[in-house]
Structures are given as structure tokens and as C-alpha cells.
Design a protein around this nucleic acid. Structure first.
Lengths: 222, 222, 222, 222
DNA sequence: TATGAATGAGTGTTCATTCAT
DNA sequence: TATGAATGAACACTCATTCAT
């Protein structure tokens, strides 16, 4: 009973438990209109995170990009972190698909083609979810759940790569795979950020070559 | 693209007279006492940048770590960015030394030893200057001069590596070297941040192996 | 190590533990200047809480009343609640003094005089700390410590009154004393808020009479 | 003095056309369905005001408690204040009934019984309308009409009590009656909020005793 | 009559930077 | 050279109220 004064933050924390008003998008039923707005915010978030970086992005940037209001943002997400979490879920799903789709890397031309296809797919995903992936890599995420989801996504891909390396007769140990993934991620980053301003196709060729030779160990005719 | 660090004040610009009020440390003669305080601030800055990240680090964190006051900070640096710049100078010098010190990577055991020595030296530098290096890599620096210094430092190492690869008969083109450096940097990052919690020595062995085989192209007996 | 993104609120919570920057006034050494500002804020807080009420008072009202800035407020208090806590400490001390100062209520004119003196003193304290006292009575305080301090203060006075009633041969049980205190508090409230716009002295006479007769049980010649 | 509740919008005034858009409930004819929804909102309002306090209660809390929507709320009430007004009307009626029902307080056992009955009735009313009554007492209401209705309700009871005291040969002056009512109100508050966690019946006995002796002046055998 | 969605002004809090001592 | 104190713009988050369906 009764009016006990609590600092607004506390109140908000208290309410987070009940969970309704500023509840993460997933916690409420949404109609067509609501789903549309949610999508707008997710897209805008991705865009702004990419432009400004996860840390520097302001909620104001995001709502402006989504052409909506401040209040609306908090109707769908508890805060910026919560938006990041939602994007991480999407990104995780996407990366799982990548992992599942990785075929055998045989020691012939077809293997090279498959590897190149995979790397191209990774880059494509990166162009959309790069900021989330970088946040995972850089440890820029404190939320347990979100962080764990990142680990799971990376692990899925790492395992897929490791298995394929094994099949190809190469070392697929943890460290080697980690080095490989680091290289792929950085490559996608440089590619997406245009820091290496070269022809995308030939960039991809070079990466494929380095990965093939360095990690799958097979001699390849340049 | 992305996260270039700009001090908030820049946004709502005010004045930009080169360096008068809290002139950068280098602009003034310092006595013993002053040099000691400067050192304290540089060390504290490095530490805090490492703990909180360049963007999230607050001047308050730094002065507390240095056991000094806000006022003192601005006696030595014009702002947070200026401190980063000072650290970048140190880091750049260090990386130049690394580049200069890279010997030939021959196709025998001695080559492996030299490569391993170089990688170990890089990791050591990274343990101290990691945050600056990461800020460079991630494009988290907006200041022209500081950024340019990063490019120079990376280029020095890249060139050294490229030359040595050439000598060893391997491809030393820009993209390949970039991939190599990305891998080394990430490795050092994971190593320093203990995200890969394995034995440092064997981590280094694996990295050496992957780099040797993947980039210098030589067959190596595991 | 490293930049994990945490929502600003979380960070602030984390820092509260370390306790330095927005630390409650008591946690830092203050010089003359600082003590003066602290006093200004406490006084302004008391005034604004009185005018607007504890809940409705905005930090902005308080800093305007104290002729200082927003930032300064948070240099001395973690938030509004923290200011209330500080005022509660002062108020608690004051009420303890009241309790300690209550003399015997004898069944003669001197008893009436002592009772009147006590009630006058209570009203004086109330004029200064009324908002805090009301917040305690109304349960408008959620903070454990602050709340407990209120209970302690009330208990001290209640015990003193109960003892004096006993000595006078009257019932000094918990409920009766509570009823007595409720009446006194409400009286002070109406008196301070000028809701009963009558002559203060005769108001006090009437209160003394009612209390004397109703609680100390002695027949008194009007 | 103090905490008069004003809706935030009033401050940044906008329009004040008497009662057009969400006309107060009374202004429209309601069918069965509408009356039911109105009732739900009134009940929920009372409940939430009791739990959170009049000031802290949010429209969102109320509609959630009433299992209806924001839009619906404004179909029945112009704003939060309007809901409070509607509840005040109910409460005022109830208190008028209390006043009308107060019988003579004779100087014998029957007088005690009647007083006890009245106090019990007051407590019952308080259990339902406590928040409104407290808002009146605390001056938490800025609306003229609502406030006036509170004064009228209190005056009705005060007059009834004053008259009965007179009949019993006791002082029934304004101040004494105010003191009496303050005590009764606080008692009901503590009783309802369970701050005095004692047996309700014996609480009521004690209150009756104190009131009887202190205000009606009669000697009573404990 | 009911509802979910949208809005934006209001308020709390932080932190880089300046200033007086 | 050092320091504690002050400042205010920037940003996060809330909630009463309106609107389209």
C-alpha cells in the first residue's frame, strides 16, 4: 500500500519485471501496423549502428532514421541494448544458416568454388549484420544472453569449418579455426567499410586462395 | 564508416584555437615533477582505455586511476582525444621498431624461429598498446593526425612483412598481407583479452605454424 | 578488459558502488566552498519539498532555488532520494533532541507548561522538517535506511511520551501513544500549512488542553 | 501549501474547452456495457490510487488493472484528475451518510457503543476511499471543485461531531474537532495500511476510549 | 464502444571542460 | 603545478494524451 517514493529508475526496473509497457517487442502481440513499425526500427537500428557504431549511436539517431518518435522506440524496446539484443537474435539465426549451408571443401576445383561461395555468403551477411558481429567480436556487449547468442553463432560456424577442414585432412583445432575466422571477419569488415578499396571480386579471390592454402593445406594452382 | 571518436564538444563546436589553454604535453618544457605526472596520466590512460574501451573511458576514470585531479589532466592534455594522440605517438614508435626488427623468414627452422620471435614481440607490444591498435583498426579515431599515424605504423609493418614474404618466394600483395595482419592482430587481441584461455606458448606455436604455412607457403613438419 | 557495452544506467549503478563522483555528500571531504554549496542544496531541498511536495519536486526546482546548476546537484547527491535521505538524517537528529528534552508532565500547572513547551518545540521542528516528517508518516519513502531512521525518530518521541504518561498515571500503551502522536503531527501540519488559519498561540493552547486532558487524564480547569 | 496534484499538461497548457473530447462520464448517457466499463475503471482507479498513491498512479496502471485500454479510459474521463473527481463525488456521498448517521453520544454505555459504531463505519469507508480522503487531507488536489467537495465532506462530519460533543457538554470548537478528526483519520490510515499490525477490534476499543475520554470528557470505566 | 499505436514535452542523469584558489 | 568545485549541453527514458481503425 501507498506511494512509497522510489526514484524513477527504480520504478522502471520494478516494472521491467511485470514487463508490459516498454516490453521487448517479442513480449506483446503485434498487429500489422505494429509489426511494420518494429521492422522500421530494427532496420534503422542496424543502419545507425553501422554508421555511428553501437556505442556512439544515440536513440535519437535511430528514431530519426526510422522516421518515428522517441516514445515509439520505447514502445518496442526497453533501451538501446534491447534493440541490439533483438538484432543479435536475427543475426544469430542468419549465421546458423550459414553454418548449416557449408558444404564439403574438397581438394579440387569444386572445393575452391564451395569455399568461395561460403565466403561470399558470409560477406553478404556481414554487410547487413556487421555491427552486431563486430560488437560480438570486440566484446562490446555486456548482456549475458546476447553475448551467449554470439558465442553460439560463432561456434556453429567454427564447428562447421573445423569439420570441413578435418575432412580435407587439415588441422581443425580450436586455435587454427579461430585464426581462420578472425581473418574472415576482418576481411568482411574491411570489405564492407571500404577500407581496402579494391575490386570486391578479386578481393574475394585472394581471400579464398589464402584460406584454401593456409587452412585446408592443399596446394592450388594460382 | 563507423564510430570515429569525436569529442562531444566538437559537435557543438566552440573554439578551436590550436593549442593554448591546456597545451598538449609536448608543447611545454617539463620539469621532473611535471614529467612524472605526465607519465602517470599516460599510463593511467592506457590502463583505462584497456579496461573500459577508448570510447567509454571517462576523463574521471583516468584521473582517478592516475590519482590526480581533473584540473591537472587539462594541464597536460587539451582533451581526451589529445591523450589518445600522445599514446598513439608512443605506440607508433614501438611498431616502427617492430617493423625494423623483422629479420628474414628463411625456409628452414631459423625462419620459423624468427617468425615466432616477431609474433611474440608483437603480442608484447599489444599487451601495452592494444587499445590504441584496436582503435586504429576499428576506425574509432577521427583525428586526422592520429589516424594517419596509425596508417603509417601499420604500413611499416605490412611492408616489412610483404618484403619478407617476397624474399621467401610467396605472394606479398596488399590483400594477402592485410589478411595476415588482421589475423595477427586478432590473435593478439584474443590472447590479451584472454578470450581464448589456452596456454600462451602453444597459442603462439599454432599461430606461427598457420602464418608460416599459409603465408610464407613453405611446407612445415608439424 | 574492454568496452562491453552497458546501458548508461547500469554503469551508473556500477559506479555507485565505487562511490566517488556522484557520491552522497558525506562520502567526500569537503572544503569550505563545498560545505557551503552542500548547505545551500539541503536548504533549497527542504524549501522545495515543502512547497511542491516530495514527489512532485523536480531536481530543477531545487537547483534553481539553490541558485546552482544541475551538474552541481549530482556532485553532492546521487539523486533526489539521496537528498531526502540526507535531510532525514538531520531531521532524525532534531527529533532525538526533542525526545531527550521532554520533561515530566506533572499533574499541576507546571506539567501543562512543560507539555506546551514540548508541543511548541515540535511545531518549530515541523516548520523546518515537515516535508520529511510527512514523508515518513505517509510511507512515501522506499529507501530502507531512510525509512528505518524515521521509525527510530518516531519511536524515540513515542517512548518519551509514553514514559511521561505512565509517570502521570495514564495509559501509555502503544496505540494510545500512536493516536497522540498522530494528532500532534496533524496539528503541526495544519498549523504549518496555514490550513487552520487561526491564532497560533491559541491553537497551541487548545492542543495542549486536549492532549493534557485526553492523554494524561488529568482534570484541568479551562 | 504542497503537492497539489496538477496534471503535467496543465503546466504546458494547451486547451481547456470544458469537457468535449473525452467528456466526463456523467456527461453522457450510458448503456449497460458502458456502465460496466465505467465501474471497472472507477474500481481500478481506487485500487491503484491506494497501491501507488494518487500522484504516482499512472493511467497505464489503471487501465491495466481495469483490463481495458488507454483509449477507453479517455472515453470515460477527461484525464486522471477527472477520475479522481468522480471518485471524490462517491466518497463525498459516503461521508455525508456517515455524518447523517451519527447518533447522540450519551454519557453512558450506549454513548460508547454509538461512538464505536461510528468509528467502525468510518474505518470501513476509509478502507474503500482512503486514497481520496488522504489526498484531501494532504492537499494533494488542485482542482477547485474536487477540493471544495472534500472540504464539504469533512465539514459535514466535523459539524456532526461538534454538535454531539456540545450535547454531551464538551467543547466542540473548531480546533478541538479538527484535532479529533485528524486523530480518527490517522488511525484509519494506520489501520488500513497495517502499519499498526494489531488486532483491529482492540485497536478500535482503544480509539473509542481515547476519543470518548479526551473529547467528550466523560469519565469512563476502562 | 473499444483498442493498439503514436506522439513529444518533461524530467533525470552524465560527463567533458573551465575556473578560482 | 595542483586541485576541488562548477557548469550546461547532451542524452536516456517516461507518461499523459490523441488518433486511426
Amino acid at each position: 500500500m501507498s506511494e512509497a517514493y522510489t526514484s524513477p529508475r527504480k520504478r522502471s526496473a520494478r516494472r521491467d519485471v511485470a514487463g508490459v509497457p516498454g516490453a521487448p517487442a517479442s513480449a506483446r502481440e503485434l498487429r500489422a501496423q505494429g509489426r511494420k513499425t518494429l521492422r522500421k526500427l530494427l532496420d534503422a537500428g542496424m543502419r545507425v549502428f553501422g554508421e555511428r557504431g553501437v556505442q556512439a549511436a544515440r536513440v535519437d539517431d535511430i528514431v530519426r532514421a526510422a522516421r518515428t518518435s522517441h516514445g515509439t522506440f520505447y514502445l518496442y524496446f526497453a533501451n538501446k541494448e534491447d534493440l541490439l539484443r533483438a538484432l543479435a537474435v536475427e543475426c544469430g539465426d542468419e549465421m546458423q544458416l550459414l553454418a548449416d549451408g557449408l558444404g564439403a571443401i574438397t581438394l579440387d576445383d569444386e572445393g575452391v568454388v564451395e569455399l568461395r561461395r561460403f565466403l561470399a555468403a558470409f560477406v553478404t551477411t556481414y554487410r547487413r549484420y556487421g555491427p552486431v558481429i563486430r560488437a560480438w567480436m570486440e566484446g562490446d556487449i555486456s548482456d549475458r544472453e546476447t553475448s551467449a547468442r554470439g558465442v553460439a553463432a560463432f561456434t556453429a560456424i567454427a564447428n562447421a569449418l573445423g569439420r570441413r577442414m578435418h575432412e580435407a585432412g587439415a588441422r581443425g583445432d580450436e586455435v587454427t579455426v579461430a585464426a581462420l575466422m578472425a581473418m574472415i571477419e576482418r576481411f568482411a569488415y574491411f570489405r564492407t567499410s571500404r577500407r581496402l578499396d579494391l575490386d570486391p571480386e578479386s578481393l574475394l579471390d585472394t581471400l579464398t586462395l589464402v584460406v584454401y592454402r593456409g587452412f585446408f593445406g592443399a596446394p592450388v594452382a594460382a
